[in-house]
């Protein structure tokens, strides 16, 4: 666990919580040096290790819009406005496709283990939940977000 920077007594806290590496209370301290707004090459933690993308598939993006409206829009805008979670404008420029799909399908583990995921939990303080979307639907959401970032 990396020593943490700015927080008061950060070193001591980090040392004490070190044995509980994936305990929730250690995540804030250890990820304090990751800027969640910065671009990251992380593929995240989860079942998606390689996602192929090409030119935008409009039909798939339309399906993704439907799923997004039903299951994501209560917490996420597609502008840069924060609601419960971050606004998603530009998310496909900041994150890899794998990271996005892992965050949608595996949010709890992502926010415990992935440095960017941990930093996001520390910033927004609400655990994102898995909203029971299939792998296909997840891919459709990704396409919708890609189209949104065109």
């Amino acid at each position: 666990m990396a020593a943490c920077g700015p927080s008061n007594g950060g070193d001591k806290q980090a040392t004490e919580s070190a044995p509980a590496a994936n305990a929730e209370n250690s995540s804030a301290a250890s990820s304090a040096d990751v800027d969640p707004a910065a671009k990251s090459d992380s593929k995240g933690v989860g079942k998606f290790t390689s996602v192929e993308i090409g030119t935008i598939d409009n039909a798939m993006a339309d399906k993704g819009k439907g799923v997004f409206t039903a299951k994501c829009s209560a917490c996420h805008q597609i502008t840069d406005q924060k609601v419960v979670g971050p606004g998603l404008k530009g998310v496909t420029k900041r994150r890899t496709p794998e990271w996005i799909m892992n965050q949608i399908t595996n949010p709890v583990e992502m926010e415990q283990k992935d440095p960017v995921g941990k930093a996001l939990l520390a910033k927004y303080l609400t655990q994102m939940s898995f909203q029971n979307v299939s792998d296909d639907e997840t891919r459709q959401i990704l396409e919708y977000l890609r189209k949104n970032d065109q």
Binding site: T69, A70, K71, S73, A74, N132
Partner: peptide, 18 residues
């Protein structure tokens, strides 16, 4: 564990914020 939103047939359900 939970009830699927797409299977919610309550006539007064609002299935998204829209």
């Amino acid at each position: 564990k939970f009830f699927k939103l797409e299977e919610n047939d309550n006539p007064y359900a609002a299935k998204s914020e829209k």
